[in-house]
Amino acid sequence: MFDTMTFTKILGGFAGAFLVFLLGKFVAETLYHSEVAGHDGEVVQGYLIDTGSEDSGEEEAEGPTFEEVFEAADAGRGERVYNQCRACHALEDGANGAGPYLYNVVGRDVGTAEGYAYSGALSEAADVWTPENLSAFLEDPQGYAPGTSMGYSGLGDVEDRANLIAYLDTIGD
């Protein structure tokens, strides 16, 4: 049933099919993924599909600024947003946790919470916790003050930040 010639034909068929597959893969990579040197020596993609998204010339519509949102901020909603902060921060004067206390934080000098050891990165970023500085910090703590010990990833929604800062502004003197 299986003689040497039949076995050789089957093995040759598989090897031929494999070689055709590899050749097809090589041709596809050459067409779509290769890089070719352009006229000025810069490397350009071998096959480029123009989507037109880069040269649209239109700027994306930006939402309202923080100042506009802060004027209409709701401290009651900010209290609900504060629940995200509660794990590390306390509102009582002098009650530090993993983070410094937030009593009277709006308008306070940066890095002046008594009894809390700051990382030093905050004092390089700002002098006073104005609503604008707090908003920028809460949006992206690591981006605003690289090296800060605050491990929070940030609060992206401008309304949530404004409401939280309005709530924190009611806590204190």
Rank of each mutant, 00 (worst) to 15 (best):
S53F: 08
L19F: 06
L164G: 03
A98L: 15
F2L: 13
V110R: 06
K25Y: 10
H39E: 10
A73P: 02
A72Q: 06
S34I: 07
L134K: 06
A28Y: 15
Y47T: 12
G13S: 10
Y167K: 07
V20K: 01
A95E: 07
G97F: 08
S153M: 05
G12R: 14
L19I: 03
Y144A: 11
V36I: 15
L23P: 00
Y118R: 10
Y116W: 03
E71H: 06
E58R: 14
C88Y: 01
G151Q: 12
T51L: 15
T8I: 13
Y118K: 09
Y32N: 04
P100H: 10
G41A: 11
R161A: 04
A117W: 12
A136Q: 10
T170M: 05
Y103T: 05
L91F: 08
E139I: 02
G115F: 10
M5W: 13
G154H: 09
Q45E: 04
V158C: 04
T8Q: 14
F137G: 00
E58K: 14
R108E: 07
G147A: 12
F7T: 11
C88K: 04
N96G: 11
A162Q: 03
L155P: 00
V128S: 05
A117R: 14
Y152N: 09
A113G: 06
L91Y: 08
C88E: 04
G12P: 02
C85L: 12
Y47C: 05
N104F: 04
G63D: 02
C85Y: 07
V69I: 14
L19G: 00
Y118S: 12
E159R: 02
L138V: 14
D109M: 07
A125N: 13
T51W: 11
A126I: 00
F2T: 14
L122E: 02
E71D: 11
A136G: 05
A73F: 01
V27G: 12
F14W: 07
T170L: 06
A17W: 06
V44P: 01
T65D: 15
F2E: 13
A37P: 08
F66N: 12
L155A: 01
G111V: 13
H33Y: 13
A136R: 13
G16T: 02
L164Q: 06
E62C: 04
S34H: 14
Y116A: 00
G16P: 02
G13W: 09
P146Q: 09
H33T: 10
L23A: 09
T65R: 11
L23N: 04
Y47G: 04
N96H: 09
F70N: 03
F21Q: 08
G99V: 02
S53W: 08
G63P: 13
C85K: 11
F21W: 14
L164K: 04
D55P: 06
G115L: 11
P64Y: 15
I49D: 15
P141F: 01
A126Y: 00
F18V: 12
E159K: 01
A17G: 15
H89F: 05
A136H: 08
K9A: 13
G99K: 06
G94I: 11
